[in-house]
Nucleic acid binder design. Structure first.
Lengths: 182, 182, 182, 182
DNA sequence: TATGAATGAGTCTTCATTCAT
DNA sequence: AATGAATGAAGACTCATTCAT
């Protein structure tokens, strides 16, 4: 029975987001295959990291597509996006933590592309009067991703219940921590 | 001339926050000393990581002390805290990225202690009616730290200007991204 | 369609004489079969090497038989032997290059046996006054084989035309490089 | 005390000429250093092979220089050359056996250069009436080297006494195996 | 029978670490 | 005290080998 590369990537992202220095041994075990097979599918550690990065970015992009980021009410879209992304928060944590991943030009290009989409989204929301214009759209995109990654780590470490995560995230991100004066 | 351990720690934190898997070689070079000297000061990689962690947590704790976290107006305190922490955001990025740092009991204890202080701070703010009570204080503390770490990474990568960071952070964290209906 | 073991052996000898460290992969490809099939025919690398060695030595022995080494005029016999062996020079190159082949007792025995026949041949030639007696017969046999192997390599590398090789070899070996004073 | 790279190269050539598939472990042990040190001096197996090749070719070239190949009586020069080269015959054996060494352009260039010198030498000898003109100078050079390599192997395997080697080689090469009719 | 797919075994390589100066 | 040089230890990698079809 053939090994499913995507399931290997998912396992790898899971392990690596927890511990970026994880041995290939551990990753292979998590994927339920041998180290040798891991090497056959992804020739070398670097290739594996790159593949996991591409996988994560693809999933991220898929989520942006799925919620039709470029259309519709921005706030509702953002809520749907969070619901969709939180289950993959570990992938975002991986993308956030593995900073030197972006030495790879292909990966960097895709990363920038998705980043641009999200920035454009927030910009549109600002123009439509849904998001505060005092905050740069780039920073909104950045912060949104930071919180997503943080949720990913918190879930993995058991500090946050997956169930509550999406709500907590969107509430804080949209409404802020300060209580509004009545 | 004797080597200053703190400058080594700072250099190490800088390198390691960018790349948690950085070799001792690179760290030693960043600190301007030889690998052998690095080894004499911190006997082993683990010891170095632990020392950097302690250093970062101490600085974090110092900031909490300096703004008198346990007293005074919580919102004003939070603003001062951000101003004080943003210059050290790289240290927070290090603390956030080096997840397996907390295998060390001593470090974990200190980490928990500072975390508790911040959670208690948010709880107090909630009780005083300054922070929203719908969001768990633990999540507020978590998210606050996530944003801080994200700012650290963004500054290091040149995606965010150090000058604007503190303002952007506090504005988003307190007020959220959504525009309040007039 | 059944695989012909001898064609595999020939391909293997060809590849291995060029590169004694060639992988089974390369050999299988040269033989036009899969690695797995190669393995079924020859159970293991060592077995393959042994088989190629036996094959080469058998061909060598066949040549000695064919020219009736033990009988007739030694010089004429040697000329016929060279004509007969040069087409198989690659096999000699293999036998010369794969030094550790002779760890196998069976192979070593056959190798010694053929070597003895050639040495005896030169000895006979010396006794009959055809070969110089100042040179040990063992050395003559050795040098003869060295030149044969050298020709094999030179042909494979395109440094020597197969057509001229036999003549050049026998002329040098019998007459030497020095011009005889008239 | 610093490791002498040349002594490592000599040990490596010795081991590798005997067994081209020798492990780095064995080579390091023969050189009296650790595998790690071997890797520090020559970064990787390929680099080591290349270095050994360059070393051997340099020694070969040094011998050509030392006997002033381009000047003086060719036969006497050849005799001196043999005396000089036989102690390094193992290096020649290495150069002859490691055929795929010449994938490296630098090595190939040096190899061709030394080959050209020897070919030119034989050509000169032919023009001066010392070597037979029926045999291509290129073949003389080739055969000369083959015998040298063969001597190297024979000595290593104990089939030939180092003491007698030079004499046997030069006598056969110059005079041939056939007894000259009185 | 023949092979693509998977893996065990063992080498290559690179660290972190130690030694000698 | 500080470092270049050397090495032990352990992970990365690549074979030869086996398995399932």
């Amino acid at each position: 029975m053939a090994i499913d590369p995507d399931s290997v990537l998912k396992a790898a992202a899971d392990v690596l987001s927890r511990n970026p220095t994880a041995h290939l041994d551990e990753i292979a075990r998590a994927a339920g295959i041998s180290r040798a097979s891991l090497h056959r599918i992804f020739p070398g550690r670097e290739a594996l990291l790159q593949a996991v990065g591409m996988f994560a970015l693809r999933r991220y992009g898929d989520a942006l597509d799925a919620v039709r980021l470029e259309h519709g009410d921005t706030e509702q879209t953002l809520r749907r996006l969070v619901d969709r992304l939180v289950p993959d928060a570990a992938l975002c944590a991986f993308l956030a933590g593995e900073n030197q991943l972006y030495d790879d030009p292909e990966l960097l290009a895709l990363w920038d592309q998705q980043g641009d989409r999200v920035r454009a989204f927030f910009l549109r929301g600002q123009q439509e009067g849904r998001f505060r214009i005092e905050l740069p759209a780039g920073w909104l995109a950045e912060a949104f991703f930071d919180l997503l990654a943080g949720v990913g780590w918190a879930i993995q470490d058991g500090r946050l219940a997956p169930r509550d995560s999406a709500h907590a995230l969107i509430e804080l991100f949209l409404g802020g921590a300060a209580r509004r004066p009545d």
